[in-house]
Simulated scan of single mutants.
Amino acid sequence: MGERLREFVADDCWLLIGVVTFALVSLAGVAGFSTLAGVVSIVGWFLLTPIFLFWGDEIASLFDDRGVSDSHSSESDAYEELKRRYAAGEIDEDEFERRLDRLVAADDSFDGPDWGTESPSATNEPGGSITADHPPAVADEVDERDRTREFEQ
């Protein structure tokens, strides 16, 4: 689905449905089909218009190739691009492993459950120690951050 069509469905389709419903109800009423006018107004104004007004983004994403969540697709895009470049011979095995490790580390750093829970007594300097009040998972996380800082310097 094109980006313009997706934006239309997400933002403006409800308005088009409302206007078309008004036109159809008017034509059916003038032609003497009052039952048809009633059915069209119920379906158009009371069913389709609210659905597209409140859930237009979700409906557009159902038909979108990228899916509902763009964050997951961007993560998989990075992995796919890395694999493609390695397969094409643009990067060697060492470079592939290094970049893959960085991608995995970046994913893990955002998924960490202990953000901001370290006590002031814990040190983050290389060779520093973690106090006994921290579980092993926090110690591993701090060690990983130390290695990342050393690598970035």
Rank of each mutant, 00 (worst) to 15 (best):
Arg149Pro: 10
Arg6Glu: 04
Glu118Asn: 08
Gly67Val: 05
Gly127Pro: 05
Ala10Tyr: 00
Cys13Tyr: 01
Ser129Thr: 11
Arg4Gln: 15
Gly29Met: 01
Ala137His: 08
Ala78Phe: 02
Trp14Asn: 14
Gly38Arg: 06
Lys83Thr: 14
Ser119Lys: 14
Ile130His: 03
Gln153Asn: 15
Arg145Gln: 06
Thr123Met: 05
Lys83Ser: 12
Val142Lys: 01
Tyr86Ala: 09
Gly128Tyr: 01
Ala60Val: 01
Glu97Ala: 14
Arg6Ser: 09
Gly32Val: 08
Asp143Val: 10
Tyr86Phe: 09
Ala31Val: 09
Leu53Arg: 13
Val138His: 06
Gly116Ala: 07
Ile59Asn: 01
Leu100Val: 11
Leu15Trp: 07
Ala132Arg: 09
Glu90Arg: 11
Arg145Leu: 11
Leu82Phe: 04
Glu150Tyr: 04
Gly18Glu: 05
Pro136Val: 05
Leu48Ala: 13
Asp107Lys: 09
Gly116Trp: 00
Glu93Val: 08
Val39Phe: 00
Ile130Phe: 00
Gly18Cys: 07
Pro113His: 00
Ala139Ser: 12
Leu24Ala: 14
Phe46Met: 10
Ala106Gln: 09
Thr21Arg: 06
Ile42Gly: 02
Ala106Val: 03
Gly89Asp: 01
Thr21Gly: 08
Val20Phe: 03
Glu125Ser: 13
Asp146Phe: 09
Thr21Phe: 00
Glu141Gly: 08
Glu75Met: 12
Glu118Trp: 02
Gly116Met: 04
Phe63Leu: 08
Asp65Gln: 11
Asp70Phe: 05
Ala60Met: 01
Ala105Trp: 02
Thr35His: 05
Trp115Ser: 12
Arg84Pro: 00
Val40Cys: 06
Arg102Met: 14
Thr49Tyr: 03
Arg98Pro: 02
Arg66Lys: 15
Val19Phe: 02
Pro120Asp: 13
Leu15Lys: 13
Asp65Leu: 11
Ile91His: 03
Asp94Asn: 07
Glu125Ala: 13
Phe151Ile: 15
Asp101His: 13
Arg145His: 05
Val25His: 04
Glu7Asp: 15
Val142Trp: 00
Gly112Met: 04
Ala132Gln: 10
Thr35Leu: 09
Pro113Leu: 01
Asn124Ala: 07
Ala87Glu: 12
Pro113Asp: 02
Glu7Leu: 12
Glu144Val: 11
Phe22Pro: 07
Ile42Pro: 01
Ala132Ile: 02
Asp11Lys: 14
Glu152Thr: 06
Leu27Gly: 12
Gln153Trp: 06
Leu5Ala: 08
Thr117Gly: 11
Ala31His: 10
Ala31Cys: 11
Ala37Lys: 02
Thr131Val: 07
Val142Gln: 02
Ala31Tyr: 01
Asp107Leu: 04
Leu103Arg: 05
Glu81Tyr: 06
Glu144Pro: 04
Leu27Ser: 11
Ala137Val: 04
Ser69Lys: 13
Val68Gln: 08
Glu152Pro: 05
Phe54Ser: 14
Gly112Lys: 07
Val142Pro: 02
Gly128Asp: 06
Gly56Ala: 07
Ala87Met: 04
Gly38Val: 01
Ala139Phe: 02
Arg85Gln: 07
Glu150Asp: 13
Ser119Tyr: 03
Glu141Ile: 06
His72Phe: 04
Arg149Ser: 15
Asp111Tyr: 00
Gly116Leu: 05
Glu80Gly: 08
Asp65Arg: 12
Arg102Thr: 12
Asp12Leu: 06
Glu95Ile: 03
Arg66Asp: 15
Val142Asp: 00
Val138Met: 07
Arg84Ala: 09
